[in-house]
């Protein structure tokens, strides 16, 4: 029984189904990566697991509990954190306030967690009183990441965390993701940079047209000739 599993999910935004019979799962201390061509429904599948679209069929279970009919908010309260691909910081608030918002649902003292985030991303400590809207793209991505960590999630969902950042920042972000995995958090992410992502993935899901095409460990997928030819550019 996986930590999080979305089983046989079918649905879309009202019109035609974008995903059909799709299954995604991830365990504690694991990184699962969803890759696939544009329009394969990668982000949609993640939103389905977050409760941001209605499923026609299928179920989502988290920690053994059926959460299919919970609202997004209730799923967040269960211990899931999500970093959207864009508009993922509060631009008019300071870096520190952004992090505080991440801990909004926590009643305990979260100064320890803030320090941990600052250790992970030293640049955020430096700019903690600066307004997030003034930061560079890579720094914003770090703020968004940090905000998600502030709730001490058991499951972290990242929607293309490296979109639009430089290769150096990208490598750095992947490093951080690995560090977070060390703490026992389950990580589910959608990635454009399939090769690097599969490289660090414990589990990979290749989606095509909203359906599972290949599912295996990251390494196996990387070495699968068909996956290489079709999705990794040879």
């Amino acid at each position: 029984m996986s930590f999080l599993i979305g089983e046989n999910m079918t649905g879309g935004y009202g019109g035609a189904d974008i995903i059909s019979d799709c299954t995604i799962e991830v365990d504690k201390g694991q990184i699962a990566v969803i890759v696939g061509p544009n329009g394969a429904g990668k982000s949609t599948v993640m939103k389905a697991m977050l409760g941001m679209l209605d499923l026609k069929s299928g179920s989502v279970r988290f920690k053994g509990k059926d959460i299919t009919h919970l609202t997004t908010q209730d799923r967040i309260a269960e211990g899931i954190a999500f970093v959207p691909q864009s508009n993922n910081v509060f631009v008019s608030m300071t870096v520190r306030e952004n992090l505080e918002m991440g801990a909004f649902l926590r009643d305990d003292d979260f100064s320890e967690t803030i320090n941990q985030v600052f250790e992970l991303f030293p640049v955020l400590a430096e700019k903690q009183n600066q307004v997030a809207g003034e930061l560079s793209g890579g720094q914003r991505q770090q703020v968004a990441f940090g905000r998600a960590l502030m709730s001490q999630p058991q499951l972290l969902m990242l929607d293309e965390p490296t979109a639009g950042v430089s290769p150096i920042v990208m490598d750095d972000l992947f490093e951080r993701i690995l560090e977070v995995r060390q703490t026992g958090v389950a990580i589910l992410m959608v990635e454009q940079n399939a090769r690097q992502a599969l490289n660090i993935a414990d589990k990979g899901f290749v989606l095509v047209m909203g359906e599972n095409r290949h599912t295996d460990t990251g390494q196996v997928l990387l070495n699968d000739p068909e996956v290489r030819r079709s999705f990794l550019g040879g």
């Binding site: 997004t72 509060f90 991440g102």
Partner: peptide
């Protein structure tokens, strides 16, 4: 302020 700034993200933060 968070809600005014970015409604969706505020909801994702549990507001």
């Amino acid at each position: 302020r968070a809600y005014s700034d970015n409604e969706e993200l505020a909801l994702l933060s549990g507001v």
